[in-house]
Design a protein around this nucleic acid. Structure first.
Lengths: 202, 202
DNA sequence: CACTACTGACTAAGCGCTTGCTTACTTGCC
DNA sequence: GGCAAGTAAGCAAGCGCTTAGTCAGTAGTG
């Protein structure tokens, strides 16, 4: 059982370091966070960070990649439940908003620390972001084609929908009165209004 | 003319340093920007920065304060033109969006570098932000009271309207196809949809 | 109108400290 | 005993900011 226990111990330590990095990056930003901060928050010496990770930037990359992949998967999950653009929009926006509220710490790092990534890592992340944008754009266009969305400019509408969701990461506080689900419900309704769905017909 | 020329020279240098700081803070973030970066961009030695400003943080504070005051004034200007909540909303959102697009560099520093301010400076800035929020909230509530806005939750709607505007600073690029005015027009329409104004009646 | 004293703008050099990361070593589990 | 996990100590580089000084351009005085 050597391998298993060793692997799980190492994996647990890696995860602890990543968690500590998420909190620190979200609170203070990548550049204001020191490797000593992260190590201390994980209950380890500064050198331990380099036993499990190559660099401070690698931590940011791992956080950013898994966060973006999670968001892309979440958007796609919202699309497969139905063929109706209205239902799809509600599902996608609701999930997106809930995830950005509940996971606002990760979401903050994901959306506001892109400039600290290395050029190669940034390029990789940029492509995932583009895929997310594409999925939402296709949804908006399918609703327009079906005649249920009344939208002047598909691009600007897509941007506004994503924008509204992403910005939750900036303003959301755990101490607030709204739960992530409250926000998800409200934002789903706002999304329907934005795409011009006649709400009285629902 | 001694005093005048000396004053204007010093003022011009101060402004050059501030401009350089805005660009650098917007592009790389406060913590990733060095005082040497700023001084070099202003065409001066690192020490010159301290002839005109107390600290690197003071530069951020000056940028942040003037930016927030500008936004507050802009919102109030949008309100005084009319008594009609619909016209006021269009005017406020349009100005807000145009300003955040055209001045996205300043707006980025204003909205995303708050954590780098000293506690005292942050508190001062927080109050200006609160005033901005209040003005928009009162507008939303006045439209509800007048029966022209159909809104479920005034707080969440206010937040969404501001959120949409602020996030422009994150995504706007000068190379894009939309002009700030295009965005202003589109966002004004989105705002009307968000507050539930019947567009066919306009 | 020359001479001196002075001032504000600016810089070269560098101080003390912190940073990301490394090295050489110890510990503890199968 | 072997090996992965973890650490104490510290290095080179870069940081914000200071010091001590240069220099151009007046203001005041006879």
């Amino acid at each position: 059982m050597t391998e298993t226990t060793d692997l799980s111990r190492a994996a647990a330590t890696r995860a602890r370091l990543l968690d500590a990095a998420v909190s620190a990056f979200a609170e203070r930003g990548f550049h204001a966070t020191t490797t000593r901060d992260i190590a201390a928050a994980a209950g380890m010496s500064p050198a331990a960070l380099y036993v499990h990770h190559q660099s401070k930037e690698e931590l940011l990359y791992l956080i950013s990649r898994s966060g973006h992949e999670r968001t892309l998967a979440l958007v796609r999950d919202g699309l497969i439940g139905s063929d109706d653009p209205v239902e799809q929009l509600v599902s996608v926006v609701r999930r997106f908003a809930i995830d950005h509220a509940r996971g606002h710490t990760v979401a903050r790092v994901v959306n506001y620390e892109l400039a600290a990534l290395s050029p190669e890592h940034f390029e990789e992340i940029r492509q995932i972001r583009q895929e997310i944008d594409h999925e939402v754009r296709r949804l908006v266009e399918s609703g327009m084609a079906a005649g249920v969305f009344q939208v002047r400019d598909a691009g600007m509408t897509t941007l506004a929908l994503l924008s509204l969701g992403i910005d939750i990461a900036r303003w959301y506080r755990d101490e607030g009165t709204w739960t992530p689900e409250d926000i998800g419900d409200h934002y789903a309704e706002l999304a329907l209004r934005i795409v011009g769905v006649d709400l009285s017909s629902l």
